Amino acid sequence: MIHELGPNRPPERFYRGGRAIAAFRGEASAAEREPEDWIGSVTTVRGEAELGLTRLPDSRLLRDAVAEDPVSWLGAEHAARWGADVRLLVKLLDAGQRLPVHAHPDDGFAGRHLGCRHGKAEAWYILQGGTVHVGLTREVSVDELADLVRSQDVDALLGLLHAVRVEPGDVVWVPPGELHAIGEGVFLLELQQPEDLSILLEWEGFAIDGAAEGHLGLGFDRALAAVNRRARRVEELAELVRPAPVRGSVFPEAADPYFRLERLPVDGQATVAAGFSLLVLVEGSLVIDGARAAVGSTFLVPASHGPVEVDGVGELLVARPPAP
């Protein structure tokens, strides 16, 4: 069977949210510091035992259910290669304020220095537009970057990045190490590797002690080694930010080893291919596996369920782990 998932919003995050998630899900109110909804999560907030994890309708943690039967949940090929490692975290993210300039480590750095199985590549499907900041406009030395962090020269840090206007239906690919910030008012669906790892280069105006916590416990001298300091030419931005195709896979091929997102417009009957997936209804009204669903509905599909039949008029986003 497939599982409809309710909200899963970790409280008291270090940045503010807006009303976009509540409006999307059809809820009356929104807490100020709940800017993220973790969908189908087997990942905890960094340093927490359970916060961030998804509970199934029968109250079991999804993490525990997958560990008990990875073949049923993830499929035989996935389980043969990766065991019970889902290799995916999906979030709704509502930037009630501009996020700080930050980056995430890659697999090698996270394994060597943090003892984590994954780094944090991520990509976004834009639901409500605005400005995103991604990629350096010029090459920066590690000493210059360290000086800007020490001085908290926010204008200079943000000025290093390309500012790009995004519209609903655009996608943004953020490789590990890439400096980025999400602008105030942007609402998006994020796919990422299943870790909560951020290297913060700024923290003024945010509810976090960045000098103590922004370097993941490594010290900034070591943490900044995970940051890509190479410039992105304007022509290269098309590799990172672009309109999504109307149907099918929407992220660049470079994201495929980490996760996949499919766009499925529906006008009548359609089928979601078999395999572990998370479904997000972003437009219209659909009957999904016999259950009527409105915009903002999210569903968890085990691999053992097989194909999912859909009927109506609307659009689904289908998030999946990498192909084994």
Results as ranks from 00 to 15, higher is better:
residue 31 A to S: 14
residue 61 L to F: 15
residue 238 A to V: 13
residue 86 V to W: 01
residue 177 G to T: 04
residue 157 L to T: 01
residue 227 V to C: 04
residue 211 A to R: 13
residue 272 V to W: 10
residue 240 L to Y: 05
residue 196 D to G: 02
residue 88 L to K: 04
residue 308 V to H: 07
residue 85 D to H: 10
residue 197 L to G: 01
residue 180 H to R: 03
residue 181 A to M: 04
residue 221 D to V: 10
residue 287 V to P: 08
residue 48 E to T: 14
residue 47 G to K: 12
residue 121 A to K: 09
residue 107 D to P: 06
residue 177 G to E: 06
residue 26 G to V: 08
residue 313 V to A: 13
residue 274 A to W: 05
residue 65 A to S: 12
residue 235 E to S: 14
residue 30 A to S: 15
residue 179 L to G: 00
residue 13 R to N: 12
residue 236 E to G: 15
residue 212 A to H: 09
residue 225 A to D: 12
residue 302 P to K: 04
residue 214 G to D: 02
residue 120 K to P: 02
residue 143 D to I: 10
residue 324 P to F: 05
residue 60 R to Q: 14
residue 81 R to L: 07
residue 153 D to L: 07
residue 321 P to H: 05
residue 260 R to S: 11
residue 176 P to T: 13
residue 7 P to R: 11
residue 219 G to D: 07
residue 147 D to E: 14
residue 210 G to V: 02
residue 36 E to A: 07
residue 261 L to I: 08
residue 73 W to E: 01
residue 249 S to H: 11
residue 75 G to V: 02
residue 262 E to F: 12
residue 60 R to W: 08
residue 246 V to E: 12
residue 64 D to A: 15
residue 303 A to N: 11
residue 253 E to A: 14
residue 125 Y to R: 08
residue 18 G to T: 06
residue 261 L to H: 01
residue 178 E to S: 15
residue 18 G to N: 06
residue 244 A to H: 06
residue 271 T to I: 12
residue 153 D to H: 01
residue 10 P to R: 01
residue 224 L to E: 03
residue 251 F to R: 08
residue 292 R to G: 10
residue 68 E to P: 13
residue 119 G to T: 05
residue 92 L to Y: 03
residue 168 P to E: 07
residue 217 G to C: 06
residue 25 R to N: 06
residue 291 A to Y: 13
residue 169 G to L: 05
residue 143 D to C: 08
residue 190 E to V: 02
residue 197 L to M: 03
residue 234 V to W: 09
residue 281 L to W: 06
residue 15 Y to N: 00
residue 152 Q to N: 12
residue 137 T to M: 10
residue 31 A to T: 11
residue 194 P to G: 04
residue 298 T to P: 05
